[in-house]
Design a protein around this nucleic acid. Structure first.
Length: 547
RNA sequence: AGGGCUAUAGCCAAGCGGUAAGGCAUCGGAUUUUGAUUCCGUGACUCGCAGGUUCGAAUCCUGCUAGCCCUGCCA
């Protein structure tokens, strides 16, 4: 199911395997535990895991925890949960911090071979001497220090004899390189910070550009897949691999990260939305995080299928969110039970229906999947329909209920409106209809046809429920400098209505298709047996337009 | 602009010298007890632009244009 999709990375791997460059293909998914995973990460996860799987290889999950200032165990746990939920099982779970000893050894070997030196200059001085995009940099005086002195200084850095920022270890490459990443990049910095994994064992931490290739080489990663912004770092990646005294020879391949319409996709921005309370948390159903999508009601399969279908390339892209929604509908179409919910109730009294009588009508649970069987739903003299399903003065082509019009009540009877009851403000409070017993659903009645079929909930057995309807978090109509100016103020709409009586015992994450409304998920945090809460995942498509 | 990369329909995206796949979206039409689903139909005389090579070019070459990324002791 995941195949028939080809892309440039697959071509590279195929060629490598044909040429026998590697015994097996090994990939890795390397998140930094400084935030929650989002759907952009899902693209990378699916790519890495399924690529290795297709070629009979393996994939590690490796936390890139080289910067204790930003990282936290909370994020590690959330990431673990999200990957598991998506349905992937890493060959091994590793941490960059597992390799700190080895990385230190490699750094020492670099110094011993005259390929790295300890820098005395301040951060500002380093920056000034690095040059600019169009001018070469200048070599630091520290560059000519002896190997012995470098070794001693680096040892002192490790021993904690310097404060944060006082010294740094730099690679000795080329201060005049047109690629700024090669102008003696920093390899190690000092940070007297507690690490979530190694505690206070270390006060020097390797930089990403030094650590990452080493991690890949240590784990035997063959294809190290990352996003486009690391392209300029590839020469440095290769430099580290070449000079490291390790067997692995991983190569870095870059692809374009995912962008989605009407959403932001950077951990920094998402964290800001959380920290500044624009949303409920990382798992707010409006967030593009894996946990947000999960709470909203997206399924792992829909997310994975989306990730497969958008493809992998190097071109900047902006994918329409409706594509994601498409795959959710696709996944739930045959799986989700149909049920009826009235989100904005309007009472209908069926004046010729006997008072006090209730009949239970059979209703299929999923007409597209008969194996799901049937349920029984009540029908009596008073029912609720959707307020928008009645108009006193309808436009043309409106084939729902209006005075004098007859419609079908799903699974029940035809009803015809004969009276509209209003309060003193002119607000419609209820409508009166008659029903025709001969038109009962399942009776085979063909005497006449109606254009509209309305869903309903029986008033005497109705179960109150809350419905949360979501709109995009980011509105591209608004203008402003910051993405915060584009936050959609009405991205959440809450309605209170009713569901069928057999919905009383729903469980968190149960998913339903509410007839004519869309797919809904039982909210895992706020729904209780006393107060049901349903999140609308996506609506049904509709070609209905008023006017 | 010094370097790195990208450009195929509204949006993704195949294509790798032999005459433009597929998906999403849109718009029609048929069926329909969900204005849903399903089914059929719908768009590139042309692949950023201009030249060149070739019997033949989206694919090769040259030049140009536009967009993205790079001057953290972040990843």
């Amino acid at each position: 199911m995941s195949e028939n999709h080809t892309h440039f990375i697959k071509h590279i791997v195929t060629k490598d395997m044909e040429e026998g460059s590697y015994e097996e293909i090994v990939t890795r998914f390397p998140p930094e535990p400084n935030g929650y995973l989002h759907i952009g990460h899902a693209k990378s996860i699916v790519l890495n895991f399924e690529l290795a799987d297709e070629f009979g290889g393996r994939t590690n999950l490796r936390f890139d925890d080289t910067n204790p200032l930003k990282e936290d165990k909370e994020y590690v746990d959330a990431i673990l949960e999200d990957i598991h939920w998506l349905g992937f099982e890493p060959e091994a779970v590793r941490y960059a911090s597992n390799y700190f000893d080895e990385m230190y050894r490699q750094a020492v070997r670099l110094i011993e071979r005259g390929l790295a030196y300890v820098e005395d200059l301040s951060q500002e001085e380093i920056r000034e001497m690095r040059g600019t995009l169009t001018e070469a940099g200048k070599e630091s005086p520290s560059r000519s220090r002896s190997i012995e002195e470098n070794l001693e200084l680096f040892e002192q850095m490790k021993q904690g004899e310097f404060g944060d920022g006082e010294k740094v270890l730099r690679a000795k490459i080329d201060m005049s390189s047109p690629n700024i990443n090669l102008r003696d990049p920093v390899l190690y910095r000092i940070s007297h910070t507690e690490h979530h994994n190694t505690g206070s064992d270390w006060c020097i931490y390797p930089m990403y550009s030094f650590a990452h290739p080493l991690e890949d080489a240590i784990e035997g990663v063959t294809h190290s897949i990352c996003t486009l912004e690391f392209e300029d770092q590839r020469p440095l990646y290769d430099w580290v691999v070449e000079h490291a005294e390790l067997d692995g020879e991983p190569k870095q391949i870059e692809f374009a990260r995912l962008n989605l319409t009407n959403t932001v996709m950077s951990k920094r921005k998402l964290k800001q939305l959380v920290d500044e309370n624009y949303v409920d948390g990382w798992d707010d159903p409006r967030m593009p995080t894996i946990s947000g999508l999960r709470r909203r009601g997206f399924t792992p399969e829909s997310i994975k299928q989306f990730c497969r279908e958008i493809g992998v390339s190097k071109a900047d892209n902006l994918v329409d969110v409706r594509m994601l929604e498409h795959f959710l509908r696709e996944d739930l179409k045959l799986k989700a039970p149909r049920t009826m919910a009235v989100l904005d109730p309007l009472k209908v009294v069926i004046t010729n229906y006997p008072e006090g009588e209730v009949e239970w009508l059979p209703a299929d649970i999923n007409p597209e999947n008969e194996e799901m069987g049937t349920r029984e739903i009540p029908f009596s003299r008073e029912i609720y329909i959707e307020r928008e399903d009645f108009m006193e003065d309808p436009p043309k082509k409106y084939f729902r209920l209006y005075p004098g019009n007859e419609v079908r009540i799903k699974h029940a009877y035809f009803i015809k409106c004969h009276d509209v009851i209003k309060d003193e403000n002119g607000e419609i409070t209820e409508i009166h209809c008659t029903y025709d017993p001969e038109t009962k659903s399942g009776s085979g009645f063909t005497g006449r046809k109606v254009k509209g079929t309305l869903h309903y909930v029986d008033a005497s057995e109705a179960v109150p429920a809350e419905f949360r309807l979501y709109d995009s978090l980011i509105d591209d109509e608004a203008a402003g400098d910051s993405f915060l100016d584009h936050v959609n103020a009405s991205s959440l709409k809450v309605q209170h209505g009713f569901v069928e009586p057999n919905m009383k015992n729903v469980q968190p994450h149960d998913k339903f298709q509410f007839f004519r409304h869309g797919y809904f998920n039982v909210d895992p945090k706020d729904s209780t047996s006393e107060k049901l809460v349903f999140n609308r995942v996506v609506g049904l498509k509709s070609s209905f337009k008023l006017k």
